[in-house]
Nucleic acid binder design. Structure first.
Lengths: 129, 129
DNA sequence: ATGGACCTTCCAGTGCAGGAGAAGGTCAAG
DNA sequence: CTTGACCTTCTCCTGCACTGGAAGGTCCAT
């Protein structure tokens, strides 16, 4: 499989695949006589793994950590669970922050809606954020 | 108030304050005879506003949008309410996205937690992400 | 043998939110 | 009058995850 086919099969781009190789997420691909990268089908599974990790909000560095453990021949289940726990905490915090902000903005919006435009001072806009 | 005092009062840095001025988040400060920036107390309130927005995950561009409307001075409340409605919709979408992501990550994490490490083969790693 | 699709490497830029450090100016204390 | 803290502008650097483009090589059909 050449790089373009792999890119199409994984809904990504050749640029991204070369970038992943440079970043150590994909092993150095073997080459054809003409110097083209030649991928096996396992590359698709690896890229699906990377894609799922990205979708879960992991950084490429975190994904590489997991892949490195796997490539060393050890099962990274425990490590994956830890990474996901960290990610859950971060998400909970982020959600709580956004909900607090939403409440503030909603309050501010109500005030803006009910205020008499004639007596609406610019300074009032920022009272609640 | 000089830039260092303002930075200390708002738990930020002089670098950040100059960057905010360049970015249009802070107005051009008036200068002392020696060319130093000279801030009034209202700068602290403005930076607190920026800090709270940042803490809740807003971008500087989004914060600037709100500040620009305030700075227009003549900002009609109706217009502000419209802007805030847009912001509320965006926040609701963002919260919903994060909650969906959280559910996904929690599900993945549970799978990883219930796996028996002894029978977890390296090839299985993809199951958990 | 030629055209076009695809590939190669290398260099550079994007957007975000600043941070590092150089070269020099200002100000108050000793 | 000098020292040291603080300030000025300036240019470049950071990390993240790519993206774009130039210059050239390969492969396959016509």
């Amino acid at each position: 499989m050449r790089i373009g086919e792999l890119a199409a099969a994984t809904s990504t781009t050749t640029k991204t695949l070369r970038f992943y190789e440079d970043s150590g997420l994909l092993p150095h691909a073997k080459r054809t006589a003409g110097g083209y990268r030649d991928y096996g089908r396992e590359a698709i599974a690896r890229l699906d793994f990377i894609r799922r990790g990205r979708a879960a909000g992991l950084t490429l560095a975190q994904i590489r950590e997991v892949l490195d453990i796997r490539d060393a021949g050890t099962a990274p289940c425990r490590h994956v669970a830890e990474l996901l726990d960290d990610r859950l905490s971060a998400l909970d915090q982020q959600i709580a922050d956004l909900q607090a902000l939403r409440a503030n903005v909603a309050h501010l919006r109500d005030d803006a809606a009910h205020a008499n435009p004639a007596e609406c001072e610019p300074e009032d806009v920022c009272r609640y954020l």
